[in-house]
């Protein structure tokens, strides 16, 4: 039995997972079950950060991964974000880096510049 706190939404449900049967309890919704099962096998996170731009009025633009990445890839993705500088005005959802750090997710803008 493993106890977890669900981070899928702000409710923060206290979950219990039976590692043998994969039975999850304590969750208020399906997201909790999904989270628990992933957390005991391959924990993933979405990552949010910023990327530098060439524009004075907006020296950095906020970005996110458009899916979750394995927890242990967080810092290698952060390293990739430091390497580039945005040179054109972006909109929410525009891809800034495709398949970042081979994590099968894209880095997308989360702000309209």
């Amino acid at each position: 039995m493993k106890e977890l706190i669900c981070i899928a939404c702000p409710n923060g449900c206290r979950l219990t997972v039976d590692e043998k049967t994969n039975a999850v309890s304590g969750n208020k919704c399906l997201r909790g079950e999904k989270f628990a099962l992933k957390e005991i096998t391959c924990p993933t996170r979405s990552l949010t950060s910023t990327i530098a731009t060439v524009f004075d009025d907006c020296p950095v633009i906020s970005v996110k991964t458009d899916g979750e990445i394995p927890k242990d890839k967080i810092f290698s993705v952060m390293k990739e974000l430091k390497k580039i500088k945005v040179e054109k005005r972006l909109k929410i959802g525009d891809i800034v880096i495709a398949n970042v750090a081979d994590a099968n997710v894209n880095i997308v803008a989360t702000k309209n510049m």
Binding site: I5, I7, C9, G12, R45
Partner: peptide, 11 residues
């Protein structure tokens, strides 16, 4: 929030 203790500190 508890989820923030988990995903911001524990992680």
């Amino acid at each position: 929030l508890t989820r923030n203790v988990v995903q911001c500190l524990k992680d």
